[in-house]
Amino acid sequence: MTFSLGPRATSAGYRLAAFDQIGSTNAEAMALARDGVLGPMWFVTSEQTAGRGRRNRSWIAPRGNLAGSILEMIDVSPAVAATLGFAAGLALETALQRVSVEASLRSAGSDQLKFSLKWPNDVLAGKQKLAGILLEAEAVAGNRLAVVVGIGTNVVAAPEGTPTPATSLAALGVQIGAEELFAVLSDAWVEFRGIWDDGRGFDAIRKLWLQRAAGLGERVAIQTGGSPLEGTFETLDESGCMIVRTSDGRLVPVAAGDVYFGSAASVGAT
């Protein structure tokens, strides 16, 4: 089976570059954007050898996993572009729900899985990381912003020794190929990219994201480089910051950091 766009993505005019193997789909997409290639365009592979996650962490996709990046040219500020990552999370969660439903129908008696969105950019199955998202933006010729959203999903295998324990669709009993998942994801992207509407629809995206948020209303500890910030995950604000209510009642916006559910003692231990 080869990679192909879903029917909705094809009708919307998206293009596709598929690779048997590549270092990084994000790097390829941004390099072509600098050379004048316009989006919207997907770059996808089932084997990525030099991918990156947040904070330059290695993100390797062994053969059979899904690594894809979508290039969009958007006339918005970088701050607004950053909120597109939440639409990406919704698109991926929706695609995973759809393929898991299909898998459960194919396998009589299997349970439908539930997924959740962990701020700012992970998809969880239970308490385990199933997928991650990396958004990068760069000004290119014509004063336009090239936005590349990288999406990596553990389809057949999951890394070990990660800060948050990881899992794969195969380990969860979902027997599906990266190609099938990608086709569904490409259509879901069109849906939520449309709702986001160059940031004008972020309020709707925010509400949908909160309905799927992991740990909402629960204790969190956030590592931002200094001492952990502890409190309760209160909500998501209009710019995409996590709002944490501290023990003294303060509402603290957090723009970036590693989130751990539970107390500060759990930071770095899960």
Rank of each mutant, 00 (worst) to 15 (best):
N56S: 14
S239Q: 13
G240Q: 10
R57V: 08
E28P: 01
L169W: 02
N26Y: 02
M30D: 01
D237T: 10
L92H: 02
A264I: 09
R219A: 12
V220A: 13
S69D: 04
P40W: 03
V244G: 08
A29N: 01
G268T: 05
T2C: 03
R144H: 10
V190C: 14
A67V: 04
R98W: 09
L181C: 05
R193G: 03
P159C: 11
P253E: 09
L66Y: 06
L92V: 13
G150Y: 00
A91W: 02
L66K: 03
M242F: 08
P159I: 09
V254W: 06
A213K: 07
T270W: 12
L135W: 00
V254A: 07
E136H: 06
L172T: 01
V220H: 01
E234V: 06
L172C: 10
L124I: 11
A170F: 10
A31M: 07
E191P: 00
G64V: 05
G64Y: 07
V220L: 12
S58C: 13
A170H: 13
S107Y: 05
S104G: 12
R54Q: 15
L130K: 04
G199P: 06
V244S: 10
T167C: 12
W196P: 01
N143V: 10
I151D: 00
E230I: 13
Y14L: 14
S100V: 03
G201Y: 12
L135Y: 01
F43T: 00
G217W: 10
A29F: 00
Q112Y: 10
R212T: 08
A82P: 00
V147R: 01
A146N: 04
P78C: 12
S24K: 02
M41Y: 04
K129R: 15
L130W: 03
T232I: 15
V244R: 04
P40I: 07
